[in-house]
Structure formats: C-alpha cells, structure tokens
Design a protein around this nucleic acid. Structure first.
Length: 258
DNA sequence: ATGGTCGCCGAGCGA
C-alpha cells in the first residue's frame, strides 16, 4: 500500500503535474492540501479516469484538503469530529480507505509568533488530538498525513539561525505537535533517516530549492501497526523540479499491508 | 544578470 501526501498549492494550477504524477507513481492513497477549490470545482471525473475516488473538503480560494483513494472511500468526515463548533477553515478531511483510516491535515501556518493566527494554530493542533481520540484507535491502522507547518526539530530546517524568532520552529509549536504524536503516531521517515537536509518544502523565492535550503514540514504519521509494516519513506524531489511545481514536494510511504 | 515566487484574482495579501 503506497501512501502519499502533497501540498499542491492550488489543485487548479497543479492539475497537469498532479495527473502526470499519479499516472507515473501510482499511489493507492494521496492526501492533498491547499487545493484552493470549492467542492463542486474538483475534477472528480479526471481522478476517476485515473482510478481514484475523491473526498474533498474545500471552501474555494484558500485552504482545501482532499483524499484520493484507489482502495475505496467510506465514512468521510469534514473537519473536526470533536463535538465543538466547526473550524473556520477547511483544513481536515478523514475517510476510511480500505484497511486504513486516513486523515489529510493542513495545519495553520501561524504567520507570526504571537499573532492571532499563531494561537489558532496551537488550538488547532489540540483539536486534532481530540479529533483522533473521538474518531480513531491507536491500535488500528491510522494515518495522519499532511502539511504540518512545523519542523519537528532542528534537523528539519536548512539553517536554524535563519528561523530565529519565526514560526514553524518554536518550542510551543513543537510541543503541540508532540501532543498529537503522543496519541500514538510514529514519524517513520525520521526513524528511517536521522540526518538533516531531507526537506519537503522549499520557498519559491531566492532559489531555495536549487540551494537545498528547505524545511521538512510535510510528513506521514502512522499508528504502530502500520509503522511496523512501513518499508519505504521518501520525498519525491523530482516533483519539485521543472515547470510550474508546487513549493512542496510529495512525501511517500509504503506499507506491507494488503 | 545589481534581480531573483507563486496563486488567489485582478490589489495586495497569504504562504
């Protein structure tokens, strides 16, 4: 079972790249973020022709998340299932895809430390933990994948000094992420590759990709039953190259699961 | 080469 997550930075703008990539790579499940589409604007027939069913939770213009699956899509939940008020943004969609419960997440950016949006980010991660507690079992096959907008530790940024005072690296954000992970998730990519320099996101500006100056903020977390069966973790750097790429590369994980 | 980003929409903001 091949699983991917990819912040496409507008599915409309990225559709040619996404179609080509799906045809070439053939993942079974794909979590998408920043589709920037309303639900009725999703090209479901194009995905169907490629063999995928789609669960999309969008608002148009900003945010928007989706799950593509070749293994079926059931029990779709838009946003948080924590019994509180709906989220203001479309940042989470969950579905059961064959043997696994999948959550596609687009964690708020935070903008600036102390900003209202930064507090929204921290609160959002608390709600994600509550959502997992309400909808999933850490002893089952669960994936939580997406754009986390947090570098889990200093290996996950190209230059720690360059991020001093900025979001994505603060102890508060890392602690909020750790609280989600502590529900029962494993960062298999980090377990497999302890070194720095393996990034999933590169700013479009200043030739960051060419200079390998990026961040690892996209990752596929899985519960232990899946993590134990994980046989491959990688970033598809090729998808960050060439004409009209997203600023994020797809991240993939393969599991020995039927 | 003294600049060097996209995508939203059609100005300036968000990432």
């Amino acid at each position: 079972m091949l699983v991917a997550t990819w912040n496409v930075n507008s599915l409309n703008a990225r559709m040619p790249r996404v179609e080509q990539w799906l045809a070439e790579v053939g993942p079974d499940i794909v979590c998408l973020q920043e589709t920037k589409l309303a639900n009725d604007a999703v090209p479901v027939e194009v995905f169907a022709d490629l063999g995928y069913e789609v669960a999309h939770h969008g608002e148009g213009q900003w945010n928007g998340v989706a799950i593509l699956s070749r293994l079926g899509i059931d029990d779709v939940v838009d946003g948080f299932a924590d019994g509180i008020e709906p989220d203001t943004d479309a940042r989470l969609v969950s579905a059961t895809c064959g043997p696994v419960r999948v959550n596609s997440v687009y964690v708020p950016n935070g903008r600036e430390v102390g900003h209202e949006h930064y507090h929204y980010k921290l609160a959002w991660l608390k709600r994600l933990r509550a959502h997992l507690e309400a909808t999933a079992d850490p002893a089952a096959n669960v994936i939580v994948a997406g754009d986390w907008n947090i570098a889990p530790d200093d290996r996950d940024v190209w230059d720690r000094a360059a991020f001093e005072g900025l979001t994505h690296v603060t102890p508060e954000e890392r602690s909020a992420l750790a609280d989600v992970v502590d529900w029962g998730l494993v960062d298999t990519f980090r377990e497999r590759y302890p070194e720095s320099g393996l990034f999933s996101y590169y700013d479009y500006q200043a030739g960051r990709f060419h200079k390998r100056q990026g961040m690892r903020i996209d990752y596929i977390l899985s519960t232990l039953p899946l993590a134990e069966r994980c046989r491959l973790d990688l970033v598809d750097r090729n998808a960050r190259k060439g004409s009209k790429p997203s600023d994020h590369a797809p991240v993939l994980a393969r599991y020995a699961v039927d």
